[in-house]
């Protein structure tokens, strides 16, 4: 079984699950950022334009609930999609170390982008919002994403 269809199905499930956890159940930060995981996994499989499009759509979905800084998530997710797709030209393979680093840095880049764009009034200190909260969230995303990556690999091989 090819890996790409499995990725597409996974991206759809993760996107729905993200909004179920964050909006439907209102879990908030206790739930991982599954949209970023979905985007980062997809960016490794599609072209840079498609990844940008996916980032734009997913970011817009989040921004529709964020009246305070409309567009910040959209831009951050679009940029992460583009950067994620560009890593295919720089890094080949899917070793455990690479997957963890890719997901960790991808989530950190997404939070940094959001922090830059969110506006002075809402921006918390860099060390707190990006380094501490973003770092913890990035570890969370890397752990969940690593498990999903190996699940995809097992599914694709079967």
């Amino acid at each position: 079984m090819s890996k790409r269809p499995v990725i597409w199905v996974l991206v759809g499930i993760l996107s729905v699950l993200h909004f179920v956890l964050h909006v439907g159940l209102g879990i908030g930060r206790a739930a991982p950022d599954l949209l970023t995981i979905a985007l980062l996994l997809m960016a490794r499989e599609v072209g840079v334009g498609s990844a940008a499009g996916a980032g734009l759509v997913l970011g817009l979905l989040e921004d529709s609930l964020s009246v305070l800084a409309f567009g910040a998530n959209t831009v951050a997710m679009t940029m992460v999609g583009i950067l994620g797709a560009l890593t295919r030209d720089l890094f080949v393979g899917d070793s455990r170390l690479f997957v963890v680093s890719y997901l960790f840095l991808g989530k950190l880049a997404r939070d940094f982008g959001h922090w830059v764009l969110v506006g002075d009034e809402l921006r918390q200190p860099f060390s707190e919002q990006v380094l501490v909260q973003g770092g913890i969230a990035a570890v969370y995303v890397a752990a969940i994403g690593l498990g999903l990556t190996f699940a995809v690999r097992l599914t694709a091989e079967s």
Binding site: G55, F70, G71, I82
Partner: peptide
């Protein structure tokens, strides 16, 4: 077509930052 598409979408994303309250 991917690169021009990505550039166009990135610009479109930036435009959303400057939308007026009504459009938002």
């Amino acid at each position: 077509r991917q690169v021009p598409l990505a550039v166009g979408l990135a610009l479109l994303a930036v435009v959303t930052l400057y939308l007026g309250p009504e459009a938002e």
